[in-house]
Computed example of a mutant assay.
Amino acid sequence: MRIYPSDRQKKIIKINSDASRFIYNEMVAINKELWRLKQVKLPIDTIQNRIEQLELRQSAKQMSNHFQFLEDKRIDSLTKAAFRKVHTAGVPKFHRKSYVWRYQTNCQYLKQKAAYLTNGTVHFEDSKHVIVPKLGRLRVKGSHQRVLARSAETRIGTVTIVKDASGRFFLSMQLASDTPFVNWPQNTGKQIGIDLNTENFLTTSNGDTVANPRYYRIIKGRLAKAQRILSRRARRAKQEHRPLRTSKNYQKQRLLVAKLHAQVFERRRDFLHNVSTTLINHDFVAAEELRSKNMLKNHALAMSIADVGWRTFLGMLAYKAELYHRQFLTVNPKNTTQACHECGFVMGTAGTEKLTLADREWTCPKCHAHHVRDHNAAQNILTKGIIKLA
């Protein structure tokens, strides 16, 4: 949900965001130091004492006792306890200071026997206002109206407050209920395969195509001009030995650039949500496996591939399939473009040449079936998906 905090509330959000980042980085530093100290096999008293000190500080209460500025009454106590050991693999990285603010708190149901959206420490006052600890009353706007209309018991869990790089504030809630939030649609028996390409966004095995909106290309000229101005203002501020965070002209231009980036992101996300929701109405959806990282190495297609958002799209299909009790699979795209859907003949064999990107239509030399390249690929993907599903 979009929120509209006052200047006082913005300061509190900033303080909590800074405290959350500091505690996270301190915990990461403690973990790294403990790991290095425990590599020393010798029972040295100094090392053992240091390990004990660090292990004692691995709690929100001890952290507050050690760093007095964390005792600020404007800091949410649940924010200080938000560090989680969620890194099962790899080494966690420090969170750096940025224009994005973020912190988390929790909704508590202290004496209530039943949990609703209107009786926790975080709760809706009415359809346009929400109460959050330390912040107080916030005006909200977004997709919460449908949830508020529920009469079923609904518990609010983790609450996240975020300010993005363009200066907008958002609030998100994790909700839980014994009553499903989404009604599962009935099975239709429909199956579909999709071929993703740069000419159009996708082609289905039914022969339908979805045009590629190319949101980044549309705004590319305006964005390049705005970024050139931003670069000049940054250079001028540095020449005059002024920090960028206090340079008003630089900050105005930075917000403009951030808003252009946000515009592209939101338009693309809205488009991907609409297309993925439409496709998931089929009982079974098959798509090709994509290795976007390798594809981006092709400098001629890198911009088009990054602009289209294939990886995000496939992720949406995956979680929506689970949400709506549908089946979604990705298949190896090998020969899906070169093989004839009718007879299975593969171009590039038996003395024939492989199809190139310029060959949008072709005729099979074996069975003489005429194919539209992308439609044929989508049919092959669906066939592979059905075989993999079986």
Results as ranks from 00 to 15, higher is better:
151 S>P: 00
6 S>M: 02
203 T>D: 02
68 Q>K: 13
374 D>K: 14
226 A>C: 12
384 K>N: 02
184 W>R: 11
58 Q>R: 12
213 P>F: 04
259 K>Y: 02
282 H>N: 15
132 V>R: 01
308 V>M: 04
65 N>K: 11
125 E>W: 11
243 P>M: 09
305 I>M: 01
257 V>P: 08
128 K>D: 04
267 R>H: 09
25 N>W: 03
64 S>T: 14
190 K>R: 13
18 D>Q: 15
222 R>I: 14
314 L>V: 02
256 L>Y: 02
263 Q>M: 10
247 S>I: 01
50 R>F: 06
15 I>P: 10
246 T>V: 01
57 R>L: 13
173 M>S: 00
383 T>H: 10
315 G>T: 03
348 G>H: 01
122 V>T: 07
295 M>W: 08
210 V>F: 09
145 Q>V: 09
274 N>L: 12
230 L>T: 14
220 K>C: 08
76 D>T: 11
169 F>C: 08
166 S>F: 08
386 I>M: 08
272 L>V: 13
165 A>D: 10
360 R>P: 13
288 E>K: 10
186 Q>T: 00
303 M>W: 03
370 H>W: 03
102 R>W: 03
342 E>Q: 12
191 Q>N: 04
326 R>M: 01
348 G>V: 06
58 Q>M: 14
351 G>K: 09
112 Q>A: 13
119 N>M: 11
84 R>K: 06
153 E>I: 07
351 G>I: 01
322 E>Q: 13
380 N>C: 07
313 F>Y: 07
55 E>P: 09
280 I>E: 07
31 N>H: 08
167 G>R: 07
254 R>T: 07
156 I>T: 11
70 L>G: 09
93 K>I: 06
374 D>F: 10
390 A>M: 07
48 Q>W: 11
298 N>A: 01
332 N>A: 04
233 R>W: 05
67 F>S: 03
139 R>G: 10
87 H>L: 06
136 G>D: 05
314 L>G: 01
350 A>I: 04
99 Y>D: 13
225 K>R: 15
10 K>H: 00
280 I>L: 01
370 H>C: 03
176 A>L: 04
372 V>N: 14
228 R>Q: 15
127 S>C: 06
76 D>L: 03
108 Q>G: 05
152 A>Y: 05
173 M>W: 06
8 R>S: 12
280 I>H: 07
359 D>F: 02
170 F>E: 06
45 D>M: 10
327 Q>I: 13
364 C>P: 06
226 A>F: 12
242 R>M: 14
364 C>Y: 00
222 R>P: 13
172 S>F: 02
184 W>A: 04
141 K>Q: 12
341 H>M: 04
56 L>H: 12
372 V>D: 08
149 A>Q: 15
270 D>F: 06
81 A>T: 07
179 T>C: 04
324 Y>S: 04
54 L>F: 08
180 P>C: 05
387 I>F: 00
86 V>G: 06
160 T>L: 10
52 E>G: 14
337 T>W: 02
6 S>R: 10
4 Y>E: 01
249 N>V: 08
114 A>Q: 14
292 S>T: 05
335 N>A: 03
